[in-house]
Design a protein around this nucleic acid. Structure first.
Length: 670
DNA sequence: GGTTGAATAAACACTT
DNA sequence: GAAGTGTTTATTCAAC
């Protein structure tokens, strides 16, 4: 399941590039700087650059046509001779042939439906479409004027020979067709580029889509018009043909050059193909309580997709918004694209929700089965699982759910990140995951808190780890026994039954382990954690082999980039990530931080321990996806030496009124 | 096969 | 005396 989502998240070749470099403005800037310096981009040319190149080429053609037209207009009427005639007279060329579509509306919609395009790619396509629509309009203007000229010339040359007239018409037709061919070649080139970039997935049946099909498609302006109708609710009168960026009077074309008008420039690029740009919807949510806020304005920058114009203040932003993003075709199309983006995200969210629901349902059903099947990617060995299954006997734990627990979050799917401590199995297997791999349980608990709270699944941690976690989560880092009980029952649905058993175990662990220190209080006694003792419980040394150190460094780099990507993604997406109100905000960034801390701790330990090469278990088994060899280390040694709390003050923050259901009243204690 | 750690069960003492 | 708390021991199991 996780791999599947991972493959979906990186469904096209550019996604990984986006995931790797995007979100890092410095990287993007560096790339641009390299190109601007004239150095040959050795490896990568971004899709945006290619689209810009295409736009530039298309605009060059259009500009040439316009210049040609102007030159002709300057002399055509007075001296309609020779070469002028080739263009001065126009032939009734099919309108379809004059439709310089890069992508037909059908193709555009097809692309939009493919869900393989990032919003930036969609924007790029849209801009390309816009550019070529401008080009098309210029051609139409050109065609119209040419026909006018033809008409005038026909009037002026009524006495001309019929044969010469036909020759002129033929010559002009040839010239114009050559121009059209040039445009079509650009279109083909653009399509090829799109295919190369993975932006356009042409189905096998469409693979050999001829140009004439492209040009015979629905008129882009019609599509555009429809978009406008959709956005404006049909109020499209007097609004078409309002391409403000095209100044035919001067013959200059306002190139939609980035960054101001570019729909492509977006430093907050996507991660794994997910849209991470500032959507008005989200901004609206985040700024709705600020009177001087605007969904499209933030941090002094216009958040209109692809704009990023710096606005000094809110007033200037409003002015900019009214000027640059007025109600015109471009803005409408951009709005339409944004709608598509939102729709895709919503669709993806719905799919992921359904998937999660199916997974939960599946796991719930399987919890009643006698023998759970091992999970893919389960880090616990199959032998453990089989033991777990067989051990879930009524004698030991009558209601022990044997569900292979896989607390999942949508982000795990969306970003293809395997929650290390999520890959565990429930049930009363003897060696808990946190102990086995010496992993801190906080990331797992944080991320899967709701899961444990609602699913009657045994957390894969030792009692000692859970007790420690409960104590450390408390404000005073100390808990009474009853508060520890409450924490267990509050945090884990599993511990809302068989209270006699697990409470006894809790007490047993508190007394058994030196890491739990009992501190006398005026109100009784509280339990604290001696971190030093806790970490000394299972001294597992890390091998000082160069391979391991290298792998750990790789892991560190990975986790660092992961952290950055996660944080960027979090910031940009503002995804709640199944957060809960009562316990901070378990996020991917926290997970990444936890991973990084793990690796940092491992590195510290590796540096400090050095040459102990005893074989053993590795907490990085949990991070096997980053290719870390299994060698022993103790990643928690980087923790502070001691967190023993001796204060007698105690502020109970837990409710003591919680009833312990199925609590037999410690009948075993009698 | 021995060692170790953890879970479970139980007994017991002590305190409230 | 009941209930809760804390300690200790024993047994079983699994991983190493």
């Amino acid at each position: 399941m996780m791999q599947e989502s991972g493959s979906e998240a990186t469904s096209n070749g550019s996604a990984s590039q986006n995931g790797a470099s995007s979100g890092n403005p410095f990287t993007d800037c560096n790339l641009r700087e390299v190109r601007s310096n004239g150095e040959t981009p050795s490896l990568e040319v971004s899709a945006a650059d290619l689209v810009h190149l295409q736009q530039h080429q298309a605009l060059q053609v259009a500009r040439q046509l316009l210049l040609h037209q102007q030159q002709q207009q300057g002399s055509g009427l007075k001296s309609p001779k020779g070469n002028d005639k080739q263009t001065a007279q126009q032939v009734p060329v099919s309108v379809a042939m004059m439709t310089p579509q890069v992508i037909t509306p059908q193709q555009m919609q097809f692309i939009l439906q493919q869900q393989v395009l990032t919003p930036q790619q969609l924007q790029g396509l849209l801009q390309q479409q816009q550019t070529l629509m401008l080009q098309q309009q210029q051609l139409q203007e050109f065609y119209k004027k040419q026909q006018d000229q033809v008409h005038l010339q026909l009037l002026q040359q009524q006495h001309g020979g019929k044969q010469s007239k036909e020759q002129q018409v033929a010559a002009q037709q040839l010239a114009f067709q050559q121009q059209l061919l040039q445009v079509q070649q650009l279109q083909q080139q653009h399509l090829l580029n799109l295919q190369r970039q993975g932006l356009l997935t042409i189905q096998p049946g469409q693979a050999a889509l001829p140009v004439h099909q492209l040009t015979q498609g629905k008129h882009p302006h019609h599509f555009y018009h429809q978009l406008w109708k959709e956005v404006t609710g049909g109020k499209d009168e007097n609004t078409t043909n309002n391409h403000g960026s095209l100044d035919l009077s001067t013959g200059s074309i306002h190139s939609p050059a980035p960054p101001k008008n570019s729909l492509i420039v977006n430093h907050h690029a996507s991660t794994n193909g997910q849209h991470v740009g500032h959507t008005p919807k989200r901004e609206c949510l985040s700024n709705e309580d600020n009177p001087h806020s605007h969904p499209l304005y933030g941090h002094g920058v216009c958040k209109w997709p692809g704009c990023e114009t710096i606005c000094e203040d809110f007033q200037s932003f409003l002015k900019h918004l009214n000027n640059e993003h007025a109600l015109d075709d471009r803005s409408t199309a951009q709005c339409r694209v944004q709608m598509q983006v939102v729709q895709q995200l919503e669709l993806q969210l719905a799919k992921d929700k359904d998937r999660l629901q199916a997974m939960m349902t599946h796991l719930h059903v399987k919890s009643t089965e006698p023998k759970p099947t091992p999970q893919p990617l389960n880090l616990v060995s199959n032998a453990t699982l089989s033991k777990t299954a067989s051990e879930a006997s009524p004698q030991s734990l009558p209601h022990t759910p044997t569900t292979p627990t896989a607390p999942l979050t949508s982000i795990n799917q969306g970003l293809s990140v395997i929650t290390p401590t999520s890959m565990h199995s429930g049930g009363p297997y003897r060696r808990r995951y946190s102990e086995k791999y010496n992993m801190p349980i906080s990331p797992d608990l944080s991320q899967n808190k709701e899961f444990y709270m609602n699913a009657e699944v045994r957390p894969p941690f030792t009692y000692a780890s859970l007790i420690r976690q409960g104590i450390l989560e408390s404000p005073e880092k100390q808990l009474t026994l009853n508060e520890i009980y409450n924490w267990f029952t509050r945090m884990f649905a599993y511990f809302r039954r068989n209270a006699a058993t697990w409470k006894n175990a809790v007490r047993h662990n508190l007394s058994l382990h030196k890491c739990f220190v009992r501190v006398e209080n005026v109100k009784g006694a509280v339990w604290t954690v001696d971190e030093l003792e806790f970490q000394k419980r299972r001294p597992q040394k890390i091998s000082g082999s160069p391979t391991l150190v290298k792998n750990i460094q790789t892991s560190l780099a990975y986790s660092t980039s992961l952290n950055a990507a996660f944080q960027a993604s979090m910031v940009e997406n503002n995804i709640p990530l199944y957060t809960t109100a009562s316990m901070g905000s378990p996020t991917l960034s926290s997970l990444a931080n936890a991973i990084r801390e793990e690796v940092n701790g491992a590195m510290d330990h590796a540096n400090s321990i050095g040459s102990d090469s005893s074989p053993g278990r590795s907490p990085f088994q949990a991070m096997h996806h980053i290719n870390v060899k299994e060698e022993p280390l103790d990643p928690e040694d980087h923790d502070g030496p001691l967190s023993l709390v001796t204060t007698a003050n105690h502020s109970p923050d837990f409710d003591h009124d919680r009833d312990y259901e199925d609590d037999p009243g410690n009948e075993d204690m009698q």
